[in-house]
Simulated assay, not measured.
Amino acid sequence: MVKRKTNPEELKRSIRFKAKSIEDMKKLAAVRSVSVSDIVREFVEKGLAVDGYKNDIDFITEIIHKELKEVLEPQINRIVKMLMKIGKVSAGTMYANLSLIQLISDEDQEAFYEMINRSLRLGVEYMKKKDVEIDQYLGQAEEVGKDSRRVK
């Protein structure tokens, strides 16, 4: 082994290791043709780098979350406002349709309310369907027609 010159920026430190660790380091040093001290320094530097990386990753994650929030929040708010408008229009349409049906219907009040209940139950069934099921369902006019007759 070649004796290494002392670097004024390096400090010496004595460390105790388990005997098995010393043997493993000697084997690794022999394979790499370096000193055990070089192996220890390499592992310490790697360990410190990993620890520093962990601290950096938390900082980077915080920045990413902040940036995503700044980008996504306006879009999410826009979508929420659109959904609110759609909900209001849908409710208005539902009540207008019910008023029209009541105006032209010969049904008594009890039959009318039963029709509303059946319509609402069908609406709930429809909303429980998965996207794929809805696509299939809407592609079958006969099935949709049968369901609309269930309302009467």
Rank of each mutant, 00 (worst) to 15 (best):
G92F: 02
I76T: 14
G145N: 11
M84L: 12
I134H: 00
I63N: 12
F17T: 04
K12G: 08
L100A: 13
R118E: 03
Y95C: 01
P8N: 06
P74I: 03
V2R: 10
M1I: 01
K18G: 11
G47W: 02
L28R: 06
L28Q: 05
I134D: 01
G52W: 00
L98I: 08
K5S: 13
Y95I: 03
K88P: 01
I63F: 05
G52H: 02
D24N: 10
R41G: 09
R149Y: 12
R13A: 13
N97C: 05
G139A: 08
G145P: 00
M115L: 13
R32K: 14
E142F: 06
K152V: 07
G123V: 02
I86Q: 14
M1P: 02
V31P: 09
E143Q: 03
R118T: 09
K54L: 11
I116Y: 00
E143M: 01
M94E: 09
E10P: 04
E73N: 14
G92Y: 01
I116W: 01
L122T: 04
R32F: 06
E23F: 07
D135M: 10
I60E: 02
V40W: 01
I134E: 00
M25C: 05
M84Y: 09
E62Q: 12
E67H: 06
R118P: 11
D58Y: 10
I60Y: 06
L11V: 12
G87D: 13
K3M: 09
K12D: 07
Q102V: 07
I22P: 00
L28P: 02
H65C: 04
E142Q: 13
A30W: 05
L100N: 13
Q75L: 15
R13Y: 13
K130Q: 08
D135I: 08
R32C: 10
L72I: 13
K12R: 12
D56L: 12
E70W: 02
G92C: 00
E143P: 00
S35M: 01
N77C: 03
I15N: 00
K26V: 04
M94P: 02
R4M: 11
Y137T: 00
L120H: 09
V2C: 03
Y126A: 00
R4L: 07
G52M: 01
Q109G: 04
K12E: 09
K130F: 03
L100T: 11
